[in-house]
Design a protein around this nucleic acid. Sequence first.
DNA 1: GGTGAGCATGAACCGTGGTTCATTTCTTGA
DNA 2: TCAAGAAATGAACCACGGTTCATGCTCACC
Lengths: 218, 218
Amino acid sequence: MAYRQTDKVSARLADTRRGILDAARDLVSEGGFAAAQMSEVARRAGVATGTLYRYFSSKEELCRQIFREVSSQEMGLLATIASGDDPARARLVEVLRTFAGRAVKGRRLAYALLAEPVDANLAEERAFFRRTHAEIFARILEDGVEAGELPPMNVRIAAACIAGAIPTALIGPLAPQSHELDEDPDRIVDEIVAFCLAGVGAALPERKAGKIERRATA
Amino acid sequence: MAYRQTDKVSARLADTRRGILDAARDLVSEGGFAAAQMSEVARRAGVATGTLYRYFSSKEELCRQIFREVSSQEMGLLATIASGDDPARARLVEVLRTFAGRAVKGRRLAYALLAEPVDANLAEERAFFRRTHAEIFARILEDGVEAGELPPMNVRIAAACIAGAIPTALIGPLAPQSHELDEDPDRIVDEIVAFCLAGVGAALPERKAGKIERRATA
DNA sequence: GGTGAGCATGAACCGTGGTTCATTTCTTGA
DNA sequence: TCAAGAAATGAACCACGGTTCATGCTCACC
């Protein structure tokens, strides 16, 4: 025996790993997953192609990591808002605004994560991502319903609707070739948020929704 | 010159073409686009692989045709409803119900068209498909707003929200491996429709929405 | 039934991009 | 400085599935 991994080395390894992830994420933010070919990632990270496979078992695995990293970061942000003390309605507004607003800012990346065609395995990851969104929304909605702030509804379905409406309504504008957002992103975000709020019976800031009784589904 | 295409021949050609399209569509309905490989399509249609290329210049072209055929069929259905004489609200309800209901019935196919990962070119076709949906929704919404049935709103964005909410809310349930829909599809559809209606300020059948003034955007 | 053109065939081909692996370079502890 | 094992290298490899094309068959017209 004549080798034991030293701290310095394991730090360097960690650096390399980070470097690879960063390179890959950057490529995705620039050209979507399509642009993140292994050889290109390697070049960007300043390592050889084969090296990638010392850190990630496959491209799929690498992409999965990116997906997880980015989305858990976003999720964290939303989750913090969601678990605040404000009334459900206010939290909902802020969560929706944050979500949509960040997507608009990091358009290319958001597009890649939310809509770009990817292969089946990554699609699962994306589904998970969306499901996590939906859960956050659902939690707030549940609070709102319990507090009587929102009319009764099937919160899971309503949450899924929101999780679908926002990306889709943004996608056209979000798509790489579109410039629709360059003018007035806020207005678009506002409209979308308004739709979702109304959808859950929380139409106007000044107007409590209690009056509008809706469906009876638990 | 010793050959001129006879009626009988061109009929047979047309038949073969149809056969290929049908085979391909069937494969897609069973296993998604992933299952529709050229060799498999050929086998199913009872022709040789090469023959496919006498009818369609590429796989992309073939898939595109399927996409167009199926979606134009669906669109036709929705468009008919949309252009009826009923009040906007009623038309909207029927369109949404029809859309969601048909998706639930032809789950596998709907999943393939709406959500299955496909390559970039087909994704464009899908985007077009959704845009067409959205336009139908938008038209009805516009009618509703003009007639004072619905509060003012940016109908394009609201339509996009709807076009996103429905598939997404169904996708989980729609996904091949899920059996969520087997129990009570109608309830799910109802919930989704209710969300969308509320989203555009048309919350309850008995309740005109005129009172709820919303955003001022044209 | 002969001829030339369209049509069908399916095994071979090929481009792409992820993956491997024999070789080289570093790193460690003695 | 040396041995042994880890880490890095990158050109070669390979799988996959769409596409081609040399070959044989069918059809229309004479």
